[in-house]
Nucleic acid binder design. Sequence first.
DNA 1: GGTCTTGTTGCACC
DNA 2: AGGTGCAACAAGAC
Length: 260
Amino acid sequence: MPELPDVEGFRRVVADHAAGATTRRVRVRDAGVVHGSADAFARELTGRTFGRPDRHGKWLVVPTGGRFPELLAHFGMTGAFVWGGTDEPDHRHDRVVFEFDGGALRYRDMRKLTGLRWARDESEADDVLGDLGPDAAAIDRDDLRARLTRSRRQLKPALMDQTALAGLGNLCVDEILWRSRLPPDAATTELRAPEWTNLHRRLGAVLRQSSRVGRVPDRPSWLTGHRDEHDGRCPRCSTALRRGRFGGRATVWCPHCQPG
DNA sequence: GGTCTTGTTGCACC
DNA sequence: AGGTGCAACAAGAC
């Protein structure tokens, strides 16, 4: 689930409930989701006042105290930040629980992929975030074009390359390509100026609308609303949707709207 | 049983 | 060199 819009939702959870509050206890229920020592993680983040959370791509960065140590959170495919009462029973997939005076922030994740880390300084934060491209929600058209045309590659894998631009995942990219009427295997170097303008505009619209609700909506008017259907049809032209794999990811597209 | 999964990493291969 | 494909990670759905 978690792509840029989802992480934007988790950012709001932290901003609305945990920012300005001080951690009284940090419970690491599953050391597997914490990078490095679980004891050090809990110790370093206990008694810290959370600051304003920031999102870069799919990473959420929460400063504590003045700035460091920073909490760095990644949500893999199934993770989430959930706010609730301190007295609520733990969900079985609550891997780490940050307890504050007024409630608890729960890092809930079914699978356990990347998880939580902390950085003691700029250099350690850079070890995690340094290779990321600019955030997909803030990139301008010319930068988008420049970063995706450094070499000839398929458009879908290029958009999902977090070092090119950060934040887009499988669902976002299929939605953006469908709205842009571009096939997933279009060569980035073959696109012309009007197509870049259009792609940039659609990308922005998908991210804005999705971020507002904290997920890529599965409304009937969106391609995403039909990707799990057996006999899915294009919401624009009713053509049977096609399925395949690009960049190793399950891909859905409309062969009529997105001709190859 | 087998296959699939919205993310990332590391590796082999070209 | 850099794009591409794949397995691995873990747990669940079908």
